[in-house]
Amino acid sequence: MLSDEALALGVQQGQQQDLVNLVERHHDALIGYVYRLTGGNRLLSEDLVQEAFLRVWRGIDSYQYPRPFKAWLYAIATNLVRNHMKQADTRRTQSVDDEVLDLMTEPTTSVEEGLVQTEAAHDVLTLLQTLPDHQREVIVLRYYQELPLDQIAEVLGIPLGTVKSRLSLGLRRLRHAMEDSHEA
């Protein structure tokens, strides 16, 4: 199987099928990442991921082979999420509502299961939203994407030490938020 970087090189040389392969390979994981950053807004996540792939396609010339394609793609998606968050304060408005509806209407899920799942998803995404954007990004990249610290540094364009400090501060903050929510 061709590496991401080889596929990206193919896209640079005009091979559109390579882009399709890259999309199929990364779409699910990327949408999961964006979904968690946006507080559980599925439609928004799909839009942003689509835009991210469009930017990959438009700006493929600026990709520098053989640097990790995944880091480049995630950096683009992260910037899109950040820009969106600044442009419209939609973080807490649409968030999990779409997902609640989806799960409630999911034919394979019973109403009770749907509610339990939705409540758990709602809780964890709400807790995640209490973090500053830069800490949330590091935590999702680390524990959802399971990216190594050095790749997170590359995605976010920050030093390794900053990744570590953001991770540590974010986890500490998350733990406090979790304890506070339990007490409440």
Partner: peptide, 14 residues
């Protein structure tokens, strides 16, 4: 908590 974060359900459209 982190495991819940990973397991948040999602349907995709790749």
């Amino acid at each position: 908590l982190i495991q819940q974060l990973r397991d948040v359900p999602l349907v995709t459209t790749a």
